[in-house]
């Protein structure tokens, strides 16, 4: 069977396959064969059948997970290496420039980079250019900091200044005067009274900026109005849709790119390799690569079948 072998090959590469996985994959294979048959016979398929198919194809590997080994590609590893090579106490700014729509892709990157920066004892400043980013930022901090870094002190080891309106206007100010745009942190404490902001006046005093996003304002604005203007290294973690647009900036204007869930999975794998203590923590990026892989295969099959139907349809039309 033409689709049996790739599916079986997939199982041999992944780990954690169960009986449910095999049954689920068998259902998908049978479905694909049925779709191939309808394509050849030029039978009209209701779009809702296609919707149901993609629902099943994504659900099965979530319910019966298969995980794959990930290896960081150079474009992701450069970000990891930069954070790793900075001396302890370096100042890193993490900007949560995303909304719930992008969160499944971008949140795992933000979690992994946050864990890495704090584990390396860097001083971390959190902010957001998106109103929705502040809600997600607060939630991330409440989820990770008290449980995994109980000894880290707010205002000393990290601080959140939250969101402020103004898009690139915000960046235009913080590049030369951070406290003018953010006079106080998210809890209304003046920045001057927080040790993490000692001898810190603008983005020029940062050792690294990592922005997580996928819209406007986001990675592009950080490059245009901070990275290039103040010569601050900027690394980006972006939704997959935006990732290809970031490549012209790499490597001169952008230190590294984490693109989509694959970028997150690569960073997570690199983090666990160097910091085994985080193996106990959730790795949503790596977990999501199972359903992602299967869905990619199904989408490729859809395109091939669509073209098969097109090919047979044309042949039928050409016949007298």
């Amino acid at each position: 069977m033409m689709f049996d072998s790739p599916m079986l090959l997939l199982l041999t590469a992944g780990s954690g396959a169960t009986v449910g996985t095999y049954i689920g994959l068998a259902i998908i294979v049978l479905g694909l064969l049925a779709l191939l048959y309808t394509s050849i016979k030029a039978i009209e398929v209701d779009r809702r059948i296609v919707f149901l198919f993609i629902f099943v194809a994504v659900s099965i590997p979530i319910l019966f997970p298969i995980t794959f080994e990930e290896k960081a590609t150079p474009v992701v590893k450069r970000i990891f290496d930069k954070i790793e090579s900075l001396p302890e106490g370096s100042r890193i700014l993490l900007s949560f420039d995303f909304d719930p729509a992008m969160a499944p892709e971008v949140q795992p990157m933000a979690d992994a980079v946050m864990r890495h920066a704090l584990a390396k004892n860097h001083r971390v400043i959190f902010m957001s250019l998106w109103a929705t980013g502040q809600g997600l930022l607060d939630r991330t901090m409440q989820r990770i900091l008290p449980n995994e870094f109980p000894d880290k002190v707010d205002g000393v080891d990290f601080a959140s200044v939250g969101y402020t309106a103004g898009n690139e206007g915000v960046l235009n100010v913080i590049v030369s005067d951070f406290k003018k745009m953010f006079p106080s942190d998210a809890n209304s404490i003046p920045l001057d009274s927080l040790p993490v902001f000692n001898r810190f006046s603008s983005c020029k005093d940062l050792d690294l900026v990592v922005t997580f996003g996928g819209g406007k304002p986001g990675a592009k604005e950080w490059v245009l109005f901070v990275g290039d203007k103040a010569n601050v290294p900027v690394a980006v973690g972006v939704a997959a849709v935006v990732a290809p647009q970031m490549y012209p900036y790499f490597p001169n204007q952008v230190l590294g790119i984490m693109g989509g869930i694959k970028g997150a999975a690569e960073y997570e794998s690199e983090l666990i390799k160097h910091y085994p203590q985080f193996a106990e923590q959730p790795t949503p990026g790596m977990v999501m690569m199972g359903p992602q892989t299967l869905a990619h295969i199904v989408i490729i099959a859809f395109i091939v079948f669509g073209n098969v139907a097109y090919f047979f349809g044309r042949r039928r039309e050409e016949k007298p």
Binding site: I54, G260, Q292
Partner: peptide, 12 residues
Amino acid sequence: YTVMGRISLLVG
């Protein structure tokens, strides 16, 4: 990449 991104949202 767009396919990748949209699938990730559904997985989420």
